[in-house]
Amino acid sequence: MKFVKYLILIAFAGLLIYGSLDLPDRGDPDAWLHQQESITGTEVAGNYFIRQAYIDANTPNMVTVVLGDYRSVDTLGEQVVVFAAGLICLLILRRYREI
């Protein structure tokens, strides 16, 4: 049984390494992630954020602009998840009164 587990682990690692062979080099400025246009002809999101962040929101930190303005609904969802996690801790560990 333990042999099968090791086999699964090694097979998964091999699959991941095989997948990583086709990735672009780390930090390559010519990768598709950093291009002006994507394969389908639309504009890449990161490029748009870099160009328009200071003009749109008057804020130098682009990460803050993406977090608070462009993707603010996503951030709201994340915060609701954190709030729900806190409430779950409260409900699991609360001392119920003996009836």
Partner: peptide, 12 residues
């Protein structure tokens, strides 16, 4: 742009 600046500050 300045209004967005203060809006981001409030939500932070």
């Amino acid at each position: 742009a300045e209004l967005r600046y203060y809006g981001i500050l409030v939500i932070e």
